[in-house]
Structures are given as C-alpha cells and as structure tokens.
C-alpha cells in the first residue's frame, strides 16, 4: 500500500571517511550502518513547498541588497529535480548558499581576507514548478582558500539542500562549474567516486543564458525515486 523508495546508490556516493579530506577521519561513523525497513517514519518527511518561498528568495542578486547591486558576474542556475525513476519532482524546496564573487562567505566564522559585499547575502531558496524545474539568479561564487592542506583552494561552488518527498530523499550537495582547474585538486570533489563526479558539475547553457544579462548554467538533481513495485503492506 505505502509506496517505497529505491535504495541509496552507495556505489555513487562518497565514503564517510575520506582521509584526504582531513575533517572526515574523526567525524564520519566507523561502524556499519544498520539497515531499516521502510516504515511510515522513513516514507514520510518534512513538507515544504510554495508557501516556504517569498519575494526575492530565488534572486540572490536582490535578496541581500542594502544600497546597490552586488558585485560580480550575474549567473542563472536552473535545472530539473527528478527521482531516479525518471519522474520530475514538482513543488520541491531547494535551499542554496554560497560565497560572494570574491570568495568570501558572510558567515561569522569565515576568516578569509577577501571583501564582504554589503549587497550580497548568498543564501536563497526556491521551489520546483509542475515540471520539476527550478531557477536561481545569483552571482558566480569565487574560489577561496581553506586549511585542509598547504595552498588548498575550494573550486567555485554553490551548496544545495533538498528534502524531496520523504526523509530518505534528503540530499545536501554542491554544484561545481565546468572547466574549473581546481576540481582536479579538491579532496571534497575527489572523494566522490569517479563514475558519478560529473553529476556534480553544471553545464554551461546558451538556452538558459539571458541575452545581454547573465550566463546560464544547467544543473539537474536526482534524488532517490519511488520503487516500481509497491511493497506488500
């Protein structure tokens, strides 16, 4: 009766402990996970749809303005959200956060010596339409240094958070940009199995580009999908 969801694609996910990413060895679980049958607790999940998004939430070039426009290169980031069964997921919340054009987060604990932009917050959200399409307008984030190893720099990226239709479909990930030379050096990106890394990189899209205004990038997101044959009740 209740629909179930396809299992997590463990072969395509990064491991909890990835020694080159030096915060993982003391923070990832070390004992095997215990498999749970899917009950109502797992099949259900937080419901956040259109009512969660207001005004300029999806336009990061506007939602942090104080006295002018944010600096940097305007970009459009758009795509579709699917289940792995190929079905688009409508009315699904996406939350994003990112550095500004100079590679600085507004976060109080970011000590990188790059300028803050008084007109850019870097946080936003939007909801997919009936076809599973989302669209953000933002500023291309800059690269920034981090303390993982000598001369370590994170590639340009935007953080994404989605719930999807159930507790099991929760996804927190990062979107990268095509052609970034830092990808080949980044322990976080490289912790992903080689066969699925490309799924984290957006495509430049002339179709998504707005003439005279902003370059467009397409980034589709695939969550765990609904299982084809319903489990017996």
């Amino acid at each position: 009766m209740n629909e179930t969801f396809n299992p997590r694609d463990w072969a395509g996910q990064p491991a909890y402990i990835a020694p080159d990413y030096k915060s993982t060895p003391l923070r990832g679980p070390t004992k095997p996970l215990i498999p749970l049958p899917q009950s109502l607790s797992e099949i259900t999940g937080p419901v956040y749809g259109h009512e969660s998004v207001t005004g300029d939430d999806a336009d990061l070039t506007r939602n942090g303005r104080r006295n002018g426009e944010p600096l940097g290169e305007r970009i459009i980031v758009t795509g579709r959200v699917f289940g792995d069964d190929g079905r688009p997921l409508p009315n699904t919340l996406l939350e994003i956060w990112q550095a500004n054009a100079g590679g600085r987060y507004v976060h109080k604990s970011d000590q990188h010596d790059a300028p803050l932009d008084p007109n850019f917050l870097g946080g936003g959200r939007c909801v997919t339409d009936a076809n599973g399409v989302y669209r953000f307008l933002t500023i291309k984030p800059g690269a920034y240094p981090w303390g993982n190893h000598h001369n370590a720099w994170r590639p340009n990226h935007i953080h994404f958070s989605l719930f999807g239709p159930s507790l099991m479909t929760r996804l927190v990930t990062q979107m990268y940009f095509p052609g970034d030379p830092l990808l080949a050096l980044d322990p976080i990106f490289l912790a992903t199995p080689a066969e699925t890394r490309h799924l984290l990189i957006a495509d430049f899209s002339l179709d998504a580009t707005e003439s005279g205004y902003a370059l467009g990038y397409k980034f589709d997101i695939v969550l765990r999908g609904r299982h084809a044959t319903p489990m017996e009740a």
């Binding site: 997590r8 694609d9 395509g12 996910q13 990064p14 990413y21 699917f82 289940g83 792995d84 069964d85 190929g86 939350e95 994003i96 956060w97 550095a99 987060y105 507004v106 976060h107 604990s109 970011d110 917050l121 870097g122 946080g123 936003g124 953080h159 958070s161 996804l171 927190v172 990930t173 990062q174 976080i188 990106f189 992903t192 199995p193 699925t196 890394r197 799924l199 984290l200 997101i221 695939v222 969550l223 765990r224 999908g225």
Partner: peptide, 17 residues
C-alpha cells in the same frame, strides 16, 4: 532510469542558508 546525485559536505558555512 537515472543515477542519484552524489552528496557533498554541508561545510562550515551552512548557517546563513
């Protein structure tokens, strides 16, 4: 039909998002 998008870390700066 489709491969699931891999997870990446939430990182240290999730708070304002």
């Amino acid at each position: 039909a489709l491969r699931q998008t891999p997870s990446q870390t939430v990182g240290p700066y999730f708070a304002y998002g």
